[in-house]
Design a protein around this nucleic acid. Structure first.
Lengths: 150, 150
DNA sequence: TTAAGGTCTATACTTGGGTATAAACTCAAG
DNA sequence: CTTGAGTTTATACCCAAGTATAGACCTTAA
């Protein structure tokens, strides 16, 4: 067992993920063990911990595993690959920004709704649908997908 | 067909959702048709449109359908039910706030990463993992779930 | 040396929120 | 009265990102 290398359990404890998740990342091509023991046990090192943490952080930020793979695999010497990453980053930055605006909007709505709840314990609350729906109507029909599917 | 009532197609077009989704919401208890024609066609009205729009907006804000059901069903005369809604709102407000902070953080990271990408097309980029991972390490191990599951 | 616990592979199942398809029935226009 | 679009039910499938389980093998401490 190479110096500084450790087995599955240490990795999962360092990162707060399950061993199954780690093996899933491997199957999907996001994380390769640095080696195997003679008996076939996966070996990891500090860089593996970094990688898994990066995966989790990127996930929390709305990247899916397939996209994170692109992020992780981009070879800096490959002009073409780099370009793909830039595209991905730009796309994500855009949706991230939209998402932030949207969440902030809903936070405001929930906040005032919560306030209303706190007031008179009666006729204020039922207005909650009315309180929210106008906001929905204003924001253009994002969820709108092309219908007419038959 | 009651005045002001309309059928599935009008509802889906007004809200930008599929008919299947609408029937799913019904199965899950979020949306009841206001009636049925003699032949069994579902009938909706303006309030149905409001409800579906509310569902979509709430979804975009991170509520899952099961939670939206609580929001929609809360009977204002029921002290107990109202309390449950307050709890739900508080919980959501908290996670929404956390989420906003997290996303803003990642937005900043992606932004500087994107900038770095744009600079020298060479030795700047490889630092990208290092650029991100410290940020991950700082934010406490949120994803940490209890392990030791066997 | 044996028992507990770690790891391996492989397969199946879960959840959330849908979509796809089939087969039957209905409605409206030509 | 036929044809095409709309609707109904029911069942199956999809994706993402895992979790659960089984059965085999390995490691370590008592």
């Amino acid at each position: 067992m190479a110096p500084g290398a450790f087995k599955m359990r240490d990795l999962t404890e360092a990162c707060g993920v399950s061993d199954q998740a780690v093996r899933l990342y491997e199957r999907l091509g996001l994380l390769e063990p640095v080696g195997r023991t003679a008996k076939g046990y996966r070996l990891y090192d500090a860089s593996s911990v970094e990688t898994v943490r990066f995966i989790k952080q990127a996930q929390r930020s709305g990247f899916i595993l397939e996209e994170i793979k692109v992020l992780l695999r981009t070879d800096i010497r490959d002009e073409h690959a780099c370009e793909a990453m830039k595209v991905l980053l730009d796309r994500k930055l855009r949706t991230l920004t939209e998402r932030l605006v949207e969440l902030q909007g809903m936070k405001d709505v929930l906040h005032s709704l919560r306030q209303a709840c706190e007031g008179e314990p009666g006729p204020l609350c039922p207005a909650f649908l009315k309180l929210c729906v106008p906001h929905c109507a204003v924001s253009d029909p994002k969820g709108a997908r092309p219908l007419r599917r038959r």
